[in-house]
């Protein structure tokens, strides 16, 4: 097969079952870079951006093919904030949340949000139907997930209780259109703060120790915030590469997490 533009999910799933060698195409903002610069030649392509089921966004279910441009104007504050930082307006008109999840880049800007709110990944296959995977069981390594070859990511499922406040920030040396050196989401719910970070480990991570520490504080003092930032810096597992250094990423992780907690408190 060369190329199939699926108009609905069952068509896409049938094609996926029949052509396990074929690749999925949503916004194309990752796959086409491979095609253009690495001369990657897909053995076949199943385009899903027009599948109705994947475009639906209702309540707790965000269809996988919802674009960043739509998310930018959506009701989830941190998701809208992060959507606005992804690539350029042209990229956001094409790229999708599901694509971000599927690519599973350590720097994927949508991923800390999914981790911070404890979202789940809904996937489907022709043979096994729908499967729902916890985010921390979905992302397993650098660009590595537990999505099976015959599956398609269909939606991101939000928890029943969404945080009261949620804030996102991302560090890059350019003020727009930049891959994150560190990205961070802090969500504040009934049960306290949740802190998730990206670009500081092979997969998006939660700073559980830091969460535990700050959530144990009855009133959050400056000293507590300083200690919180220190723990976040300690808890992340960044590397040094051409985009930043391990030391800076640790430092920035703590600074961002602290600032976002402050923003949540002020909200």
């Amino acid at each position: 097969m060369d190329f199939l533009a699926a108009g609905d999910l069952s068509t896409a799933l049938d094609a996926r079952a029949e052509h396990p060698e074929a690749e999925l195409l949503a916004g194309g903002t990752d796959l086409m870079v491979e095609v253009n610069l690495s001369y990657h030649r897909p053995a076949g392509v199943i385009a899903v951006r027009s599948c109705e089921e994947l475009l639906e966004w209702e309540g707790r279910r965000i269809g996988a093919a919802v674009t960043w441009a739509r998310l930018e104007d959506g009701p989830h504050r941190a998701l809208a904030q992060l959507a606005r930082t992804i690539g350029s307006p042209q990229i956001r008109a094409a790229g999708t949340l599901g694509g971000n999840v599927a690519t599973a880049s350590p720097a994927g800007d949508g991923l800390p949000w999914i981790a911070a709110i404890d979202a789940e990944i809904e996937v489907a296959s022709q043979r096994r139907g729908t499967r729902i995977i916890a985010w921390d069981e979905f992302f397993v390594g650098v660009k590595e997930t537990t999505l099976a070859p015959d599956e398609i990511i269909t939606a991101i499922l939000l928890p029943e209780h969404m945080p009261v406040s949620q804030e996102f920030a991302k560090v890059g040396v350019r003020n727009v259109m930049v891959i994150a050196m560190v990205n961070c989401v802090v969500a504040r719910g009934e049960d306290g703060f949740r802190v998730a970070l990206g670009s500081v480990a092979p997969v998006p991570i939660r700073a559980y120790r830091a969460e535990e520490m700050i959530n144990a504080e009855t009133s959050i003092s400056d000293a507590a915030l300083t200690e919180f930032a220190r723990i976040v810096s300690d808890e992340v597992r960044p590397i040094s590469d051409h985009r930043s250094t391990e030391a800076y990423r640790r430092h920035a992780s703590g600074v961002l997490a602290r600032r976002l907690v402050e923003r949540c408190l002020a909200a």
């Binding site: 904030q81 606005r84 930082t85 804030e167 996102f168 920030a169 991302k170 560090v171 890059g172 350019r174 003020n175 727009v176 930049v178 994150a180 961002l256 600032r259 402050e262 923003r263």
Partner: peptide, 10 residues
Amino acid sequence: LPGGTGLTTP
């Protein structure tokens, strides 16, 4: 502001 749309900086 520094950080731009990354919203890093109060």
